[in-house]
Amino acid sequence: MATLRSSQLLAQAVALPATAYRERGQWRMAFERFLEHRLAVAGIVVLALLALLSAFAPLVSPYNPEKTNLLLIFESPSPSHPMGTDSLGRDLATRILYGGRVSLSVGVLAIAVAITLGTLIGGIAGFYGRWIDAVLMRVVDMMLSFPRLFLLILFGVFFKGMTLGVIVIVLGLLSWMPTSRLVRATFLSLKNRDFVEAARSIGARNRDIIARHILPNSLAPIIVAATLGVAGAIITESTLSFLGLGIQPPTPSWGNMLKDATSEMNQAPWTAIFPGLFIFLAVVSINFIGDGLRDALDPRHVTKRI
């Protein structure tokens, strides 16, 4: 649980300063600052590598991830099976690559859903204010008052074990609230600023004001929150799959591979170690990227050596 919520809280923490980015130059500076964050750059490299390997898994691996071979059960790592084989004689490395497709896309897609929904709701609440704001924020309060994992378990039971689409939607539906608060806060602080007033005075429509003037200014915290959110979603998916409520076999995901591995730890420790290692690699890379982005986009966090 601690990990599940951490990304949300980090997101809230970065949300506080809503720095305005009015010029391209600032994005450029941010990019340069990001490059200085060596771990974040390393994170990008590792993550890109993971994503590419997963995406091109059929080219990388000669094996079929779902093809069972009962004569090759629990082969320990060897040149032909660099990560060994699993309880059904399938090549573990291949399954990890294909599992990466599922796990990474669950993370990215779920957060895409969450960010879209959160931006929409937060934007509406922040821009229109009054009763709309009050109602929407009560909904946010309610959603935040549900213990998330406990609700996810119910959904898992509800959907009879989840498919990729379902898990993306459910995770998205349970993760948009921090973004919406963040966006709303930016809107509240920006909507009466000079440049918005100016736009309004020359007759710009609400839609244009939101799209051209306000949204770009809340981008920075959203990007950071989204990045960290992806890490959280990957862990959540693996936890759910570990409990048997996530992606169902034979489709591999890093989480459901680990679930199988728990009963085989003594016979075949590699089945427990490698999938966990890849979850860890992906999550740690994303967290570093998020960290780098925060430092880059929010200069207040970059402090001089004392």
């Binding site: 649980m1 601690a2 990990t3 951490s6 771990l39 890490a231 862990i235 693996s238 936890t239 570990f242 680990l258 728990t262 730890m265 003594n266 420790p269 427990a272 966990g276 979850i279 860890f280 999550v283 740690v284 967290n287 570093f288 960290d291």
Partner: peptide
């Protein structure tokens, strides 16, 4: 910072299982 970051990125259940394997089993 690196170490705490690493633990922060570890799924709890995996860490628990690894601890059981190493210290228990």
């Amino acid at each position: 910072t690196g170490t705490t970051f690493a633990f922060l990125s570890t799924p709890t259940f995996w860490l628990g299982l690894l601890l059981i394997i190493v210290f228990g089993l």
